[in-house]
Design a protein around this nucleic acid. Structure first.
Lengths: 133, 133
DNA sequence: GAAGGGCTGAAAGTGATTTTCACTTTCACA
DNA sequence: TGTGAAAGTGAAAATCACTTTCAGCCCTTC
């Protein structure tokens, strides 16, 4: 389905979506970075539109939002398979990590505590390869 | 060691520490809640002192900081054994969950990616027992 | 072609956190 | 016990991310 038709998406939202897509999985953009990029392509676009767009796209599941401790802005990335994130406490880089908590474990925890788990967020912190030494 | 001597801690920081301790593991306080409590015991204490104290205590590893998506203030809890957190998307409650990613897994991931993991944060989201139905 | 809903940008508002600054307290050591 | 340096302090202002509001525009639908 790649860049399949999405006829109902207002063009500004489409633009935002493209920007986040273009950044690729593994890059993580803050709203203001997105705004800057969007503004280049569409001068006159407003801040609020970017926020609204991000919210909408998130609702639609097209992008996902990510809160990383130590970064006070939310960051966005294209939706993709579940994965964890790693943040280097030295250089601040954020890396994707192919890891998800096993479904069996989730089920067990949910059962134990009596709640329903809809999503999980896993973030590691430490030093990346470049800063590790 | 319980409330062991910590001769080097300025008394305001000590106070903050006590407040967070007193809240107990599993309770999660925001800086402004902490400020309010501190202010009762020590009228005249300033906001900045609370923030500074929290920062210091965190550096010392005496308390831990927790960012929960959907809550825009940081929250603090006494340091304790590693555990995950669960946030109910309906009522906003935050629960502790006794879960940590197995050390073996961490080691493997670290090896794979070439970084050193110092800490992990795991947050689940969904509906708590009360809201699940 | 008119009605109505969704979308828009600008600007003001909100609330958490950080910074600044001048003053006070604490501490190590002579 | 005196002394200077370093650390801690509170108030207020600044910053920063984000949200809300509002009046106008555009595009679809009838």
């Amino acid at each position: 389905m790649a860049s399949s038709v999405r006829p109902k998406l207002p063009k500004n939202y489409q633009l935002i979506y493209e920007i986040v897509q273009a950044s690729g999985i593994g890059r993580h953009l803050t709203p203001s970075e997105i705004f800057t990029k969007a503004h280049k392509r569409q001068p006159g676009i407003g801040f609020s539109t970017v926020y609204r767009g991000l919210e909408r796209l998130r609702e639609l599941g097209l992008i996902s939002e990510l809160y990383v401790p130590g970064v006070d802005a939310a960051t966005y990335e294209p939706s993709g398979p579940w994965h964890a994130h790693f943040r280097c406490s030295a250089c601040g880089a954020i890396e994707d990590v192919a890891y998800a908590i096993p479904p069996r474990t989730l089920k067990m925890l949910a059962l134990q505590h009596g709640f329903k788990i809809a999503s999980e967020r896993v973030t590691f912190e430490g030093r990346c390869a470049a800063c590790a030494f």
